[in-house]
Design a protein around this nucleic acid. Structure first.
Lengths: 145, 145
DNA sequence: TATAACGTTTACGTAAACGTTAATCTTATA
DNA sequence: TATAAGATTAACGTTTACGTAAACGTTATA
């Protein structure tokens, strides 16, 4: 269990940001101390890093991320219940959630692949540009004599 | 030469956004009609698409992008002048700008590569996750009997 | 030449994502 | 046990990146 400063260091977020994310219901630390200090588990940190990826790599808004995390949470909750309450309603619901989950994962994966494609193209362009610059520099150096 | 609506369609930005980008000195259309209608060249559109990449793929702020575009513009200006005014001051300045340019390109390229790496990892993770979901779905379907 | 469809500037509004400050409480340590 | 270091909530402030509306000019077309 880690306190907020540690988590801030490990995730690269500010303490304010962590509190803000809790405020909007994005990520809630699993526990609190007697004196109401926030306590984050390793799993909490994992989730924070995951959502940082969604933010920084996919460029999703905090609201979009919230929905994604909510869906995942829902599924896990149902899975817990499923073991206790093994009825067909829960089963059908679980199948539905799994399909939803797969769908969003698929969507995100496609977005990632699209982006990677574009970024690879961009890297290629930069290679060309840089080559031209190097050539130009060489040319200028030669003309110095 | 294209009017603003065309450019909006071709770039996927709104007209308001195009005007805003001009307002903050990010991208200025090369010309205007008699009646002060904005006129964008094909090159302007290229630049807009380039900066969209910087925004959407690298996640840079408009201010950071502005500096990058400014540097590129500076270099091109000096290159123009260089042909007319071939003195050693311009030459040294041009070498300096070229080095700066290469440096920012290199930085951006590295950022891109970092991101691609992380995204590839993320895609891999998603593959694993989706496989588990598929297995789970199969399992649930089987248990239906 | 009227009018619809496009453009212009100006200016106020807004949502998202935090920063900052103040007042107060907890907790480890000397 | 005093005190410094770090935590808490509450509330207001700020920046970025546009949206929206008003009032008005331009241009193609019937």
């Amino acid at each position: 269990m880690h306190q907020i400063e540690m988590v801030a260091k490990k995730t690269g977020l500010t303490k304010r940001t962590l509190r803000y994310y809790e405020e909007i219901g994005l990520i809630t630390p699993s526990g609190r101390t007697e004196g109401r200090y926030r306590l984050y588990t390793d799993q909490d940190i994992e989730q924070i890093l995951h959502m940082k990826n969604l933010r920084d790599l996919l460029g999703l808004s905090l609201n979009e991320i919230k929905n994604i995390l909510l869906l995942e949470k829902k599924y896990h909750e149902l899975r817990e219940n499923y073991f206790q309450d093994k009825n067909s309603v829960a089963l059908e619901r679980q199948i539905e959630l799994l399909n939803q989950l797969d769908h969003t994962l698929c969507t995100q994966q496609m977005m990632l692949q699209e982006k990677v494609k574009k970024m690879d193209k961009m890297i290629e362009e930069y290679d060309q540009k840089r080559k031209r610059i190097q050539a130009k520099l060489q040319e200028l150096h030669d003309s110095k004599d």
